[in-house]
Amino acid sequence: MSIEVDHISYTYMAHTSLENKALEDVSFRVDKGEFVALIGHTGSGKSTLAEHLNGLLHPDEGCVRVDGVDLKGKDRAAKEARGKVGMVFQYPEHQLFAETIYEDIAFGPRNQGKSPEEVDAAVRSAMAFVDLDYDVFASRSPFQLSGGQMRRVAIAGVVAMEPDYLIMDEPSAGLDPVSRDNIFSQLMKIFHKRQMGVILITHSMEEAAQYADRLLVMSGGKLHLDGPARDIFTHDRETLEKLSMDVPESVKLADELRQQGLSLKGTPLTEAELIRAIERAKGWKAC
């Protein structure tokens, strides 16, 4: 059970003066139950890549398989395979359209051909996941909500389709820190409960390090690094630097502390890890 990306290339506006090679020979696989972060600068091809994963774009060369089925096909199996991959676009709240929150979240499940009871169950559970009280919000207009709430509704609209794989394109962009933490804690909850494969597209190294087991580093349409977050931030720092990408703040701070003579061990990916490492190095007891 996995998404396999097999040597894909894609060019926008091929054979014109505006030709733009967006992806070049990209290969990787993401298994169900894996949390992967796709990182890269603006224009590195990560959004284009994401659109290949649920068949919105088809590669010029190579193929994308979901659970072994090529997404390019026109048959039922290919359509079903595309349906297994949920996609949360950047600023998903801009796609809300229905009169009530219930109707908006039900849009996806209805299109899947679920029965009214199944739709209802899907909406309720999706709303629970994103911490929106069904009784309070279901009949409200999505346009009366705050930005963070609107985004949660939009995410619920994708979660309600019960995808096996979930792709999120910068789900925290433009949110305040509290809303951002909320979104991620909800995302982790869904991830653990449903054992989906999650691909998080981001350019925040902190988010990538904190949540993802594995990193995919893109630059200039090519996949440069693919490996566990800790390995990449420990061993591939030269490559990251060459691609002018950062490491998480906690790793940077650990470096500086080491230069000051503190014998820190390992690569602390998060603030909490850094604090523990300092405590250990100093011989303090955790309080």
């Binding site: 919105l56 349906g83 998903p92 801009h94 796609q95 849009f107 996806g108 299109n111 994708v158 389709m161």
Partner: peptide, 12 residues
């Protein structure tokens, strides 16, 4: 972008 988003929610 909106079309793609709705298509990925199964809109036809």
């Amino acid at each position: 972008r909106i079309m793609k988003a709705q298509m990925s929610r199964g809109a036809d």
